[in-house]
Amino acid sequence: MPQLELVATLEGHQDRVWQASWHPTKTVLATCSGDKTVRLWAPISQNDFSTWQCIDTLEGAHKRTVRSVAWSPHGNELATASFDATTGIWENDARDNSWECVATLEGHENEIKSVAWSSTGALLATCSRDKSVWIWEVETDNDFECLSVLQEHSQDVKMVAWHPTQETLASASYDDTIKIWKEDEDDWFCVDTLQGHTSTVWSIDFNAKGDELVSGSDDKTIRVWKMYEPNNTQGIATPYGQPVWKTVSTLSGVHDRCIYSVAWSKVHNHIASAGGDNVIRVLAKDSETLDDNAPSWNVVASVKNAHGVHDINAVAWFPTDKHGDWLASVGDDGVVRIWRLIAD
């Protein structure tokens, strides 16, 4: 059986760590915390990945917890979402390799829970406790224009995630649903509402192709959803000529408590999950599955007490082949850990 091997433990945050985001190409990890900062971590040597150091601390832009951090697709900008209801845009000055907050996006009424860049970097999405999702257009000179405010969720919106290649957005909410959003004639609208979870949907992530989506919930289940295009061979109806999403796998018993984070590896197709039971699981699709519309998933690696007795708030796979077996985890203990998935 594969196993998760601990590579490094990173300490420095002064409060719980909420999220981790890998640089799109470099061996640099960004983490955000209740201590109002973002820390950037990198190995001391590219020949020795067992020892890491904090190479920069981004601070001063937020007055409250930084709940979410995301690299731009090109890796030269970071977006930070805070409980102070603002989103910070940070830019790297290559001349002295320093980071500066070059824009502050305002408009949400309450805590911002998540921020995400589209695959091209042309759009930014934020979501908030105020039940709304905002779509921002990235303009020149660090200007951002709000294109649309989406208000169809009935409760706190926990997370936003962009399709890996298209300008299609998914949002997960305290209202137990996931919504899929697309643009039509200069406005954004909800093309599908994914129902099935019986409690808060905390986390979502697309697979590499973007035709499947994984979700983790307070109902202690993981769901895998599949997209069906119009005129699909399964005969599934697609109203208004838009693709629809259906649950193809519901995984129970993987965790004993709330599932706070799910991450779908774009390299080896494994799903990692973590939550309130202090356990990290790695799931793989059963290779003997005959029906792609009803796949089986198996737990292939586990780490119990991965952050001691503390909740694990997020897991994140390295995005490219270079270190595709790396998984970062962050928790209420204020610690960041990097794991490596070792094949059997």
Rank of each mutant, 00 (worst) to 15 (best):
I222V: 09
E100W: 00
K182G: 12
W326G: 10
F189D: 05
D176P: 03
A42G: 11
A284V: 10
V160K: 01
P43E: 11
T193Y: 00
S329N: 14
A328V: 11
S199V: 05
L105Q: 02
Y228K: 08
E288F: 12
S215M: 07
W18Y: 14
W188K: 10
A208F: 04
D277N: 03
L105N: 02
W117F: 13
D93T: 07
V160I: 07
K322W: 11
N232W: 14
L213E: 08
R39Y: 04
T289L: 06
G331E: 11
E5Q: 12
H255E: 07
Q53I: 14
Q234R: 13
Q195H: 06
G34D: 06
N278K: 05
T177D: 01
I55A: 08
V244M: 08
V115S: 04
D187G: 07
K285M: 15
W41I: 14
K182C: 14
D48G: 10
D184A: 15
H270D: 09
E109M: 12
A316V: 02
W162F: 06
W22H: 05
L150T: 04
I135Y: 02
T140V: 09
Q53T: 15
H197S: 10
G331M: 10
N269Q: 12
E109I: 10
P24K: 01
V214G: 03
I280L: 01
S68V: 12
S154G: 01
S132W: 11
S302N: 11
E59N: 09
P243D: 05
V330M: 05
I259F: 00
W225L: 03
H323L: 13
D218I: 00
W99E: 01
E145A: 15
K304S: 14
K158T: 00
A170K: 06
S50G: 11
K220Y: 07
A301W: 11
V336K: 05
T177L: 00
R223A: 03
V214Y: 03
I236E: 01
K113V: 06
Q14G: 11
N231Y: 11
R67A: 10
M1S: 15
P319A: 01
V28N: 07
R64T: 10
V66P: 04
L124Y: 00
T87E: 00
E145L: 15
G275P: 12
G34P: 02
T198W: 06
D186Q: 15
I112E: 05
S50F: 03
G121D: 02
Q53E: 14
L283S: 06
D205C: 08
V315F: 04
C101Y: 00
T320M: 05
